[in-house]
Amino acid sequence: MPQSQGIHAVVCIKQVPDATEVRIDPKTNTLIREGIPSIVNPYDLHAVEAAVQLRERFGGRVTVISMGPPQAAEALQKCIAQGADEAILLTDRAFAGADTLATSYVLAQAIHKLNQERPVDLVFTGKQAIDGDTAQVGPGIAARLGIPVLTYVCGIRSFSLEERNIVVERLLEEGREVVRARLPALLTVSKELNEPRYASLPSLIRAARYQVKIWTKDDIAADPNQIGLKGSPTVVGRIFSPPERQAGPRLAGPAPEVARKLVEQLRSRGIIAMGA
């Protein structure tokens, strides 16, 4: 009975440079990554939280995976502290230089393998990574796995392992959309979905002791033509800092005078109208 085993959720996470500290080298127009602390992509922490909450209700297992350099193991360990059960790092020199297409291929291959060990009910990703902002990897994985994709999820209304479906709210520009999908499905989540927990001390200790599992290209039977630079058709034409915006006009002086000037200017531009 699948029910007694609970859920198997896989969460794809990415280690990113802390955006609050990123700068662009004016000479080379590339990101200065040196010395900048790495964090788990903030949206991904909400994805881990969602998966862990479901596991707490239904039992089962949460597996976090990430494709990245060896130091990305740190980010996976952080997810263990947040309550995930297992963590796997997909790391191989042959993966280097991957764009979103090649990345989604590698992650999909890994999920495929996990699915053989134990059927996967839900795959989670953050809505986008804060370093690239493409929001393509989640949908890319879903397309390769041939499962429904629910993007910008801001709420989970219901989830049923027996009926094998999930009802979610999606955050759209014009409002919220409620949709149902059959399992297995892939969700990309937004920050509104939940509040990542303040990890307990026993979880932190478990994470500090946890050895992240390493999978290479051979472990996931990767097609050499679909990984790394070879599998990445994206070409970056140019990266540049947008020109700095000019500061607006400033009004100085005593408050009543400034207020009067402001009202005058707003009125003369037709932004506000005043009755007699």
Binding site: A199, S200, L201, L204
Partner: peptide, 9 residues
């Protein structure tokens, strides 16, 4: 005692 949930050692 620490500031974490279940925070004693």
């Amino acid at each position: 005692e620490t500031d974490r949930p279940d925070g004693q050692l």
